[in-house]
Design a protein around this nucleic acid. Structure first.
Length: 563
RNA sequence: AGCCUGGUGGUGUAAUGGUAGCACAGGAGUUUUUGGUACUCUCAGUCGGGGUUCGAAUCCCUGCCGGGCUGCCA
């Protein structure tokens, strides 16, 4: 208890948690805390949603409350079951559990209809015959107040009849709406008699053809929260102007009134996170689909090798405030590396193989050396890796004419082959074009395991694979999808796709990895030492084709210093 | 233009009238069988101007700048 108190006073709370804590302590809603994550099933979840998911489920967890998953399916035009499935999958993958509290706004269509009827009976809603353009005309604009609809004063009887007939499909789409009767002169445009029901002769994924009219977001959201007993309805800043409406419905209907609180949505450098723009990337073929590893969708990130832990850590670290923000993608990468450094097993591999023949190593001989699985986690132990006379190293690890402070292999120099032996470069073999195709080295048999008994030190340690047992692999290397940190900010007449990075995907088909990599299941993270963190792509065919994705490169101060 | 909202190092976020802190990024170094990790050090900030106060990032006034809002989307 003492500890708890200390933690609470030491750890500063964001403005929402501060509010939630106060409400709980003051006994508001009987001290109950109940949040919800309410996506519309019209697309895939992305990193921005992750922030919201972690917030809502996180608060419920921290304050001994509950969090619902609710699909806000009030517009059948764009919604699909496919998306609804993916949403549930993604939330679970992130590590959250809504238990039995999985709801749909469409669960409440009847109740919503009854409430609309009540509003009509009280003279607070009316059926309007204005079409789209006429309505916009009368709504006014930012500086001019609106004018009342000529249909605003229809009798309750007439409104009831018309609304009933709308419901039964008696009118074509767009011909009539139900509007709340609020205030056409309000400076808040959302309060100028907002549409609360529209006619849509569309099949709904959940309710089929039962309804010909559908409630608008404003008429559905607050009431859905209310029905579910939500105490704190957290949403992004753009809904700030909708809060008066949210409040108006709860109060006018005399129903439980949750508190809406808005926070700034997540923006990140080098990515786009709006559904519209992501859809264009998919449809125009700039990426391979919603789960392309370069996409900021949870499906893409999962395929890329991001872990739920890293994303959750990131979501907490980005903070929570009302000011617009642009998070640097480096923070995300840091969270991934930090997580994977602790958990990912290590393996050896070379991206661009360079053959090395160890001339004093007996021909035909093979041995196994012990390699550490994860230096950060001794419990993972060691594994055997085969070694023989012919091996491959990475082309980057040899230079014929090295610059100062180059610790890797070069003519006459000695390096350590990790876990194996010291080797010294004796000879370079080139092809007719002068390209280095092979190195002849000698090894020091005394240095087995990577240390010389005479205490001699080498500056460089490089990874290698045994030519006899290494497995060929296609490696997919990802870079930022955009060249500009803020791809949405384009010059006049420009488009965000102008900022696409043409080299965001590089496919390397010649890589070689140690044979045990094929035993790692798709999606499981591993580090190829000195190269980066990887995971096997689901496109792989076991025993036939190995395809691996680089999740993130290692930090590389050498490469950085040489830029 | 009207209304709403927000301005703290490069980025993000703390400090609610009392020493401007933390993280990422950047720089330097130590350790190292990953030029990784870890550790140490370092660079760098309260939008401007007034006011209240012993004392202001914080309160007041004013100016400037950013974001949002004119769907029968959410």
């Amino acid at each position: 208890m003492q500890n708890n108190d200390q933690e609470e006073t030491e750890k500063p709370l964001d403005f929402i948690r501060t509010r939630v804590k106060e409400d709980k302590e003051n006994g508001k809603n009987d001290g109950r805390i109940h949040t919800r994550f309410p996506p519309e099933p019209n697309g895939y979840l992305h990193l921005g949603h992750a922030k919201s998911i972690c917030l809502n489920f996180g608060i419920a967890d921290e304050f001994d409350g509950l969090c619902n998953l609710r699909l806000d399916d009030t517009n059948p035009v764009a919604e699909k079951t496919e998306y609804a499935q993916a949403i549930q999958e993604d939330v679970r993958w992130l590590g959250f559990d809504w238990e039995e509290r999985f709801f749909h706004a469409s669960d409440y269509f009847q109740q919503l209809y009854d409430w609309a009827t009540k509003l009509i009976e009280e003279g607070k809603a009316f059926v309007c015959d204005l079409n789209f353009d006429e309505m916009r005309e009368l709504r006014g604009n930012l500086t001019e107040s609106g004018k009342e609809s000529p249909y605003r004063n229809r009798s309750v009887e007439e409104n009831l009849q018309l609304f009933q007939k709308m419901k039964e499909g008696g009118f074509p789409e767009g011909s009539k709406t139900l509007r709340a009767k609020i205030d056409m002169t309000s400076p808040n445009l959302n309060l100028r008699d907002p549409v609360i029901y529209r006619i849509l002769h569309k099949e709904h994924p959940k309710t089929g053809n039962q309804w010909k009219i559908y409630p608008s977001y404003d008429f559905a959201h607050g009431q859905s929260d209310s029905i579910e007993g939500i105490t704190h309805s957290l949403c992004t800043l753009e809904f700030e102007h909708h809060r008066p409406l949210y409040d108006w419905f709860c109060e006018t209907l005399f129903i439980h009134h949750p508190q809406q609180i808005e926070f700034a949505r997540l923006n990140m450098t080098y990515v786009v996170m709006s559904k519209r723009k992501m859809l264009r990337l998919v449809e125009e073929g700039h990426v391979d689909g919603w789960d392309d590893p370069r996409m900021a969708t949870l499906q893409g990130m999962r395929r890329r090798g991001y872990t739920p832990e890293a994303i959750r850590e990131f979501s907490e670290r980005v903070g929570l405030a009302k000011r617009e923000n642009m998070i640097e993608v480096e923070l995300l990468e840091h969270c991934l590396r930090a997580d994977l450094n602790k958990r990912a097993v290590r393996r050896l591999g070379v991206l661009n193989p360079l053959k090395v023949v160890i001339e004093n190593y007996p021909e035909g001989q093979t041995e196994e050396v012990d390699a550490v699985n994860n230096p950060e986690d001794p419990e993972t132990g060691t594994r055997k890796v085969s070694f023989s006379r012919e091996i491959f190293i990475d082309q980057n690890d040899f230079m014929e004419d090295p610059p100062k402070k180059y610790f890797r292999l070069s003519p006459g120099k000695e390096v350590r082959l990790k876990y194996a032996y010291y080797v010294t470069c004796k000879e370079i073999i080139k092809d007719e074009n002068g390209q280095i195709v092979e190195l002849i080295c000698t090894y020091d048999p005394e240095s087995r395991g990577g240390d010389s008994p005479d205490g001699r030190k080498v500056k460089g340690t490089i990874q290698w694979v045994d030519a006899a047992t290494a497995v060929k692999s296609e490696v997919r290397l990802y870079d930022r999808l955009f060249l500009d940190p803020n791809p949405e900010e384009t010059e006049d007449g420009g488009d965000f796709t102008d900022n696409l990075n043409p080299e965001s995907l590089q496919i390397n088909g010649n890589a070689l990895v140690e044979s045990s990599v094929v035993d790692l299941p798709p999606g499981a993270p591993y580090q190829l030492e000195r190269i980066g963190y990887f995971c096997t792509d689901p496109d792989s065919i076991k025993g036939t084709q190995l395809i691996i994705n680089r999740s993130v490169a290692m930090r590389d101060s050498w490469a950085k210093a040489n830029k």
